[in-house]
Structures are given as structure tokens and as C-alpha cells.
């Protein structure tokens, strides 16, 4: 009995902080969207009736899906190489992935602003090469947002997957090769299935991160490429339309929760040993 009380007593302050300042306020934001005088689902009807907001939701999903897919492929291939690299070089490769990850989102997005601008480095380079006379418009396109987001999330994917891939014994890969499988077949039929739980964790992290991002789409997409994050900010801080902002917030939470729950279920089905 005392043991039980001690455990609760020690976790109580942290529990209270999360309950009072996260669960209650976020719950209140979502709950408030159902208390509109116009009707229970009125804010959602408004949201989905507006062609602009539907486009924003669709664009956000598109950017998040493409970013996740690209980060998965790049992260998986690189993590495989890192996990099979010996000693010192491996540490250097890990450090080179940790450094960008710990450098803030604003700094890393700003870097792409210098690169992709109208008088930016990439355009100057292309003009110098003679590829073009007039600079391309690269900023404020969906492509620029995706490039910067992939840049943002590849290190996270590498670090998530290196641990998983290192857990795959080398013997297994050699056994597959000695039984006559080509490297590509070994990769596809041995390494990939064993890495699935890690790939799912990585996919969830990247999808939720890019789906709810603010700084990157704001810097590189601007008003032209509005996504849910920038729409939420614009509704709340520019238009002072708190119901509209709360509706966007609720949609974000619902999609995030659905993706996390859905992917956890998929992970369980594919690998009963995984959590």
C-alpha cells in the first residue's frame, strides 16, 4: 500500500503538469469546436465547404506523404551503409547525422532560403553553367517545401534505422548470400522485412512531423503554399478567427492520432514481437 502511494506521489507533479497544461487546454480547444451556436459540426462543414481550406488540407497531406516516402528510402539506404561501417568512420557518420538534427529547424530551413532564392546560390550556379539566362522561381513552390522537409527529416530517419539495422546479424546476410541470393535479393527478402518495425516508427515520426510543421512551410512556402500549420497560425494570429484555428487544430490532432494508432496496429500485425 505504501509502495503504491510512493509511486503515485513521485509521479504526481509531472502528471499534474501534463493534465492541467496539455490535456485540459488541448481538450478544450477541440471541445470548443462542437459548441458553436450554428450547430454541432458547423465549423467542420465550413472548413470542408471552403475550396481553399480543402486545398490546404490536401496539400499538407501530399507534402507529408511525399516527404515521408523520400525520407524512408534515403534514410533506409544510408542507415544500412552506416550500420555496416566499422568503428571510427561509423561514429563520424553518426555525428554527421546528429549535428543537423540538433541544429534548429529555423536554421536548417533558412539555409534553403539562401540556396533556392531568386538570386540564390543554385540559380547563380545554373546561370554560370549556362543552363539558363533567367533565374528559375524555386522558392514558394511545393518542391522547395518538400526538399527542405526531406533535408529536415533524413537525419532523424537515419538515426532511427541505424539501431534497428545493427540488430540484424551479419551471419544472416552471409547465409543468404551463400545460399545463392544476389545482394539485391538479400536486401529485399532478408534485410527489409527485419527492418519493417523500425521503418514504421520512422515513418510515423516523419509523417506527424511534416504534417504539423510550421517553420519550414512558412519560410519556403509562404502564403502561396499554405499548409495546416501556417493556416492555423494565420487564423489565430492574423484573422483572430479562433473557431477556425481550433478547427484546424482538431483536424491535425485527429489525423495524427489516426496515423499513430493505425501504424502501431500495422506494426503489431507485421511483427508480433514489436510493441
Amino acid at each position: 500500500m505504501t509502495l503504491r502511494r510512493a509511486g503515485w506521489f513521485l509521479s504526481l507533479p509531472a502528471l499534474l503538469l501534463v493534465a492541467l497544461f496539455l490535456i485540459l487546454p488541448v481538450g478544450a480547444t477541440i471541445f470548443a469546436t462542437f459548441l458553436e451556436p450554428k450547430g454541432v459540426f458547423a465549423p467542420y462543414v465550413d472548413f470542408f465547404r471552403s475550396g481553399f481550406r480543402r486545398a490546404v488540407l490536401w496539400r499538407t497531406l501530399e507534402i507529408a506523404v511525399i516527404t515521408t516516402a523520400l525520407s524512408l528510402v534515403i534514410g533506409f539506404l544510408v542507415a544500412f551503409v552506416v550500420s555496416r561501417t566499422p568503428g571510427r568512420l561509423r561514429s563520424i557518420l553518426i555525428i554527421a547525422a546528429v549535428f543537423p538534427l540538433l541544429t534548429g529547424v529555423v536554421v536548417r530551413s533558412f539555409a534553403w532560403l539562401i540556396i533556392l532564392g531568386k538570386n540564390g546560390i543554385l540559380n547563380s550556379f545554373l546561370i554560370w553553367l549556362g543552363v539558363t539566362d533567367t533565374p528559375f522561381t524555386m522558392l514558394y513552390t511545393q518542391g522547395s517545401v518538400i526538399v527542405a522537409m526531406v533535408y529536415l527529416f533524413v537525419p532523424l530517419m537515419i538515426l532511427t534505422l541505424v539501431g534497428v539495422l545493427e540488430g540484424i546479424p551479419d551471419d544472416l546476410i552471409q547465409a543468404s548470400a551463400s545460399l545463392g541470393a544476389t545482394p539485391a535479393a538479400t536486401f529485399r527478402q532478408v534485410v527489409f522485412p527485419l527492418a519493417v518495425p523500425g521503418l514504421i516508427v520512422g515513418a510515423v515520426l516523419v509523417f506527424t512531423g511534416s504534417f504539423t510543421a510550421y517553420a519550414t512551410p512558412s519560410l519556403l512556402g509562404g502564403e502561396k503554399q499554405m499548409v495546416l500549420g501556417t493556416l492555423l497560425h494565420q487564423r489565430a494570429m492574423v484573422a483572430f478567427d479562433w473557431t477556425g484555428a481550433s478547427t484546424v487544430a482538431a483536424i491535425m490532432v485527429v489525423v495524427t492520432v489516426l496515423v499513430v494508432l493505425g501504424m502501431t496496429r500495422v506494426a503489431k500485425r507485421l511483427n508480433p514481437m514489436a510493441t
Partner: peptide, 28 residues
């Protein structure tokens, strides 16, 4: 002696979109 959901509670701030948390803290 503690329920398993307790450790999930402490992960919630990572699960809930930060921008939603920021807006909700301002609002409430």
C-alpha cells in the same frame, strides 16, 4: 504498482502536435 498508461502520459507532449499545444496554451 503503477498502471502502464502512466508512462504514456509522459510521452503525450511528443504525440500532440506542438503547434496545437502552443495555440491551446494561448487560448486557455
Amino acid at each position: 504498482t503503477l498502471p502502464t498508461w502512466l508512462s504514456t502520459i509522459f510521452v503525450l507532449p511528443v504525440l500532440v502536435p506542438e503547434i496545437v499545444l502552443g495555440f491551446s496554451l494561448l487560448r486557455s
